[in-house]
Amino acid sequence: MATQPDQMASASMVPETMQVPPGHKVALETVGMGLITYECRVKKDMAGAYEWAFAGPDAKLMDRSGKQVGKYYGPPATWEAVDGSRITGKQIAVAPGGAGNIPLQLVQANPAMGQGAMTGVTYIQRLKTQGGVAPTADCGAPNVGAKLTVNYQADYIFWKAV
């Protein structure tokens, strides 16, 4: 499942809905590798129906050479550099990631907390997703609150204003 960091997504492979607006440049390219936790919950506004709901990620962010440069965790979804600077954000677009893969995602970043690599980041793209979809195990009244983890990987591209 592991993609080499030097095989990261190029702009030509990114769906139009996932493009970062003009006036921004790539500041950091990473590969996130880790786990996504899902929790068995009652479906919102659907009494008697259940689903595996996203509960949060736990991943390492690696640079092109394979060195850990940060981590991704939540909730809320937080990208944190090894220097302690971190950001959260608001999802503004998604696109299909392919069968068995979580969707691609475009996030508008909130101002960074702390000074460092995440200072000035304006957008985060999640691209080239592998795995991470909700479990297929039974989810119902007997196991509400149960949690399961699944492996996933994705490229995270961090953008800053020019």
Rank of each mutant, 00 (worst) to 15 (best):
K128L: 12
S65V: 06
K147D: 08
A53V: 13
D45I: 05
V94L: 10
V107L: 09
K67E: 11
A53Y: 02
T78C: 09
V26L: 09
A117W: 02
A137D: 15
V133R: 00
I36K: 00
A49T: 11
A137Q: 14
Q68F: 04
T129A: 08
L106M: 09
G48F: 07
M62S: 11
T119Y: 00
Y152Q: 06
Y50K: 00
Y156N: 02
N110V: 05
Q153W: 01
A27D: 11
T37I: 00
Y72M: 00
A99R: 10
Q4M: 04
I87G: 04
I102P: 06
L106A: 06
K44V: 08
A77Y: 07
G132I: 13
M8F: 14
M46V: 08
I87Q: 01
G48H: 10
T78R: 06
A146E: 15
P96E: 13
S12V: 12
T78D: 07
M13Q: 15
K147R: 14
A47S: 12
A53M: 10
G97K: 08
K147V: 09
L106S: 09
A134I: 06
A109Y: 07
N110Y: 07
R64Y: 01
Q68A: 14
V150G: 03
V94Q: 12
P57Y: 01
V26E: 14
N110A: 15
G131H: 04
G140C: 07
Y152P: 10
F158N: 08
E39W: 01
G23C: 11
K25S: 14
P96S: 11
T37P: 05
G23T: 12
K90R: 14
A141Y: 04
G120I: 04
D6S: 12
C139W: 05
D83I: 10
Q105P: 00
L35E: 11
A59L: 06
Q7K: 12
N143R: 03
Y73V: 12
K60T: 15
V14T: 13
P76Q: 05
W79H: 06
M62F: 15
H24R: 01
T30A: 06
Y72A: 10
E29A: 11
P96Q: 05
I92Q: 01
E51Q: 12
P76F: 02
A2W: 03
D45T: 09
E16A: 15
A2E: 12
F158Q: 07
P57C: 09
P103G: 11
C40K: 03
Y72E: 10
Q19D: 03
A55Q: 12
I124H: 02
V121Q: 00
L104A: 00
A134Y: 08
A117D: 12
Q105N: 04
G145K: 10
Q4G: 07
Q19V: 04
G97T: 13
A146N: 05
M118N: 08
A27W: 04
I36S: 02
D6G: 04
R41I: 13
V121N: 01
T88W: 02
V150A: 00
M8C: 05
K43I: 12
A49E: 15
A81V: 05
V94N: 05
M1Q: 01
M46Y: 00
D155V: 03
I157T: 14
K67S: 10
V121W: 02
G70C: 11
D58V: 08
D45N: 15
T122G: 14
E39G: 03
G98I: 09
Y72T: 01
T88C: 04
